[in-house]
Amino acid sequence: MDFFTWMAWTWQTGLFIVAIVGSITLMGIIEIFRPGGSPKHGILGLDTTRGDRLFISIIGFLWINLLWLALISAPLLGAVVVGAIWVALVFRFV
């Protein structure tokens, strides 16, 4: 237990780590069953694989939350909703 208290880990950070590592692992597992990364030419004119789409959606999600804090202020519930819509759009159209 000392190991966790020493670096002051919180379960929220743990959740974040699990989410990031989990999504990358998920990409790996999908790649085993459907190799090739399902390349696509999306509306931005970019050739993306599903890993690229994951990257774009995470970066965009974080920016939406940060800009929400700068322009509208907490709580972030609205930003999470907008972010979820963004992620869905990226995976569908980019």
Binding site: W6, M7, A8, W9, T10, Q12, T13, F16, I17, L66, L67, L69, A70, S73, A74, L76
Partner: peptide
């Protein structure tokens, strides 16, 4: 990432601060 959601008062004491720092910086 872990420190960014906490407030520290030295002596290795940390308190949960949520997204407060991000709001302050932005």
């Amino acid at each position: 990432i872990n420190y960014s959601v906490q407030e520290s008062f030295g002596n290795n004491l940390f308190f949960w601060h949520g997204i407060g720092w991000f709001e302050q910086i932005m």
